Amino acid sequence: MSKENFEKQIRKRMNELEKINAHGVFKELKGKITGFDYDTKSLTMTYEATKFHENAFGIMFGGSIVGMFDITFGTLTAGLGDYSVAPTVQLSTTFLKGIPTGAIVRIEAEAVSAGKTIMNFVGKAYVEQELMATASGTFMTPRPFKKFIEE
């Protein structure tokens, strides 16, 4: 994959994310792509820990953090392949500290490997400069992508 195609695919994915329905997870997390780098095969996105995501402890619900990693890794697959979506095979998250509601969460992700059928990623979640969570994920590259839902 060329640098130009990587950037083209990331920008295409940015546009697709903007069109997702108003009540989807991405919109609820208020996600934004803030940077990407072809040479390091990396992507940075930010999200907002809104009251919608608050759990009984007054911090962000862990599933929302997992969703942030899933969306970020999934978006990076768009830059590394010729498709706009790749199914999650495995996603493991380690929670280090509670994320307060109202915080801006920065997810930094990079590809460990990007093969013809599988891609592996690692990521870190930060609030300001404080590490809050880490994750690793495996995604299947759809060649060809099979639809599992009837239209």
Rank of each mutant, 00 (worst) to 15 (best):
S2E: 09
K3F: 13
E4Q: 10
F6T: 07
F6D: 05
E7F: 06
K8E: 02
I10R: 05
K12R: 09
K12C: 08
K12M: 05
R13A: 10
K19A: 15
K19D: 14
I20G: 06
I20H: 11
A22I: 13
H23L: 15
H23P: 08
G24H: 10
F26H: 04
F26N: 08
E28F: 07
E28W: 01
L29C: 10
K30I: 09
K30R: 14
T34A: 02
F36G: 08
F36L: 03
Y38T: 10
D39R: 14
K41Q: 13
K41C: 08
S42A: 02
L43G: 01
L43Q: 04
L43K: 00
M45Y: 06
T46N: 05
Y47D: 01
E48H: 12
A49R: 01
K51D: 10
F52W: 09
H53F: 13
N55K: 11
N55C: 12
A56T: 14
F57D: 10
F57V: 11
G58C: 08
G58P: 00
M60D: 06
F61L: 11
F61A: 11
F61N: 13
G62Y: 07
G62Q: 07
G62H: 04
S64G: 15
S64D: 11
I65S: 04
G67A: 12
F69A: 02
D70T: 05
I71Y: 07
T72C: 06
F73C: 05
G74F: 12
T75R: 03
T75G: 06
A78R: 00
A78L: 03
G79P: 05
G79A: 08
L80E: 08
L80Q: 06
G81D: 12
G81I: 10
G81M: 09
Y83W: 07
S84R: 02
S84L: 02
S84V: 00
P87Y: 12
P87A: 13
T88F: 13
V89P: 08
Q90I: 05
L91T: 03
S92L: 05
I99E: 00
I99D: 03
P100L: 06
P100Y: 00
T101I: 09
T101Q: 02
T101R: 08
G102C: 04
I104Q: 02
I104C: 03
I104F: 08
V105A: 03
R106E: 00
E108S: 04
E108L: 04
E110T: 04
A111G: 05
A111W: 01
A111H: 03
A111K: 08
V112Q: 12
G115P: 06
G115I: 10
K116I: 09
I118M: 15
I118L: 15
M119I: 12
N120I: 13
V122F: 03
V122N: 05
G123A: 02
G123N: 00
K124N: 00
A125T: 04
A125Q: 01
Y126A: 01
Y126N: 07
V127I: 06
V127E: 06
E128L: 08
E128W: 07
E128V: 03
Q129R: 10
Q129W: 00
E130P: 09
M132S: 10
M132A: 12
G137N: 06
G137S: 12
T138E: 12
T138Y: 01
F139W: 15
F139P: 07
M140N: 14
P142R: 07
P142F: 07
P142D: 00
P144K: 01
F145Q: 11
K146I: 09
K147G: 14
F148H: 13
E150G: 13
E151S: 15
